[in-house]
Amino acid sequence: MFDDLRDLYQDAIMQRGRAPRHGTRLAAYDAEARGDNPMCGDRVHVFVRHEGDVVAELGFEARGCAISIASADLMAEAVAGQSHARIAEIAEAVERAVRTGVLDDPALEGLRPLAAVHAAKSRLKCATLPWGALKSALEGSVRS
């Protein structure tokens, strides 16, 4: 019945948006940052815990739309176990994906639902909001 709505709001986006798996503040974290989109009032607060040079775990608190929350939740899984350099590459791949609709890094299959945001230009900032907050968090942490 909702086929015409499903191109953007795929099951992954809807489920993650409604019940994110990583939508909590970490009990212990060593980097954090907030991001907000004043246009719609969406807010995200990202918490990161490192192990050595890699991000071991990411949690977040967010108030926002399904796309921004789903993006944060998928982000948490994509960056776990990754170095800052690799996370920067992943964030760039997401940026390209939402702009072009093409996810060009085969290692990032889990982020594929975000590429659909390409179809709604006015929503790109919703998808990229948590990634901007993560960038700020990592820049603010001592590791680089």
């Binding site: 709505l5 953007l8 709001y9 929503r123």
Partner: peptide, 12 residues
């Protein structure tokens, strides 16, 4: 969220 509502309305 209002933005999701607007996008879904736009889809229609």
């Amino acid at each position: 969220h209002a933005h999701d509502v607007a996008t879904l309305l736009d889809r229609q």
